[in-house]
């Protein structure tokens, strides 16, 4: 369905998958907050109007309605943008979705700075951290269209709430359709020995690009796609760092509270080694073209590479 190397927004894969799921499972219900054409939930609405509800521009109401329907046995998908689900409706997520532990799957577009030229109001760069702090939440960002499809399908079988973040803009397809995905299990994409790059979402393909360049410069990096940051796949991290002795985390998010934090917290308590986090550092981004923003905010392939050199250097000093 999705060809390797094609650039596809993961929100598109979400919409396609919803329809596919809707045909197989009549318990699936979708709530949307008046951006169905953008989140791609409208595709589901067209085929299943009796199970699709446009709640209007009212995300707090949307989230609590979703909780109510889920408490009556429905598998509920909530579509909106990441900023609104995680911040406008944060308390509703915490108190009505997470605390009762109902089957609400919050699948939200415009994660990180992928809505680039829309500007800061639409770029969610704190959402993973906010959601990760809520007890019982599962927090996911797939790297491409193939993994989005697989993880959205897995979400319907998962007991309890999920926050799954999507991209507005295209990201390259990096997986073939034979790859299997499990929520909470990272994917070892490339083996290496000098350093481990752990990336999430749209940054996974950037990590792969960085690895290619690094290998020409004599550094062999292991690359892990940590599509689920909660629950964190601790064993894949341990297995890798025992070999490499250093980590660079890469996320389209503030470096606080997201992937970098999750990995640092785990390693700090269990296996302290040099670590460098790539992501936004206490700043909002701005409107602009995605690749230019990555450069300006030090999240580009070059920045991943220099992060790797830093960690490799610190490893040597340690010896």
């Amino acid at each position: 369905m999705y060809k390797l190397g094609d650039s596809i927004p993961t929100r598109n894969a979400y919409g396609d998958t919803l329809v596919e799921l809707g045909r197989k499972n009549d318990q699936i219900v979708v709530f949307e907050a008046d951006i169905g054409k953008s989140t791609r939930s409208a595709i589901f609405g067209k085929e299943f109007p009796e199970r699709y509800f446009n709640i209007g521009v009212a995300e707090q109401n949307e989230m609590a309605i979703a909780a109510g329907a889920a408490s009556c046995g429905k598998i509920v998908f909530v579509s909106t943008y990441a900023v609104f689900a995680s911040m406008r409706a944060c308390e509703q997520v915490r108190t009505f979705v997470a605390y009762p532990h109902v089957n609400v799957k919050i699948c939200v577009s415009h994660g990180g700075i992928t809505p680039a030229n829309d500007g800061v109001t639409h770029q969610a760069t704190e959402d993973l951290g906010i959601m990760r702090t809520i007890p019982g939440m599962t927090v996911i960002m797939p790297a491409d269209a193939v993994s989005t499809r697989e993880l959205v399908i897995a979400a319907t079988q998962w007991d309890g709430p999920i926050y799954l973040r999507l991209t507005r803009d295209g990201v390259p397809v990096i997986y073939n359709e034979e790859t299997s995905f499990k929520i909470g299990k990272g994917i070892l994409l490339r083996e290496g020995k000098d350093i481990t790059i752990i990336a999430i979402g749209d940054m996974v393909s950037k990590a792969l690009d960085a690895r290619d360049i690094l290998s020409k410069q004599g550094i062999l990096a292991e690359v892990i796609d940590m599509h689920t940051i909660k629950p964190l796949d601790e064993s894949i991290i341990l297995d890798s760092v025992r070999k490499t002795g250093g980590v660079v985390t890469v996320e389209d998010h503030q470096v606080e509270c997201g992937l970098g934090s999750a990995v640092s917290e785990f390693l700090g308590e269990n296996y302290p080694i040099p670590i460098q986090r790539i992501g936004l550092r206490n700043t909002f981004a701005e409107s602009g073209e995605y690749e230019l923003l990555l450069k300006k905010y030090k999240m580009s392939v070059d920045d991943i590479i220099s992060g790797c050199f830093k960690v490799v250097g610190r490893k040597k000093k340690k010896r």
Partner: peptide
């Protein structure tokens, strides 16, 4: 809101 969700499910 939650009640509306339950009513929708019914």
């Amino acid at each position: 809101s939650v009640g509306a969700g339950m009513a929708v499910a019914a």
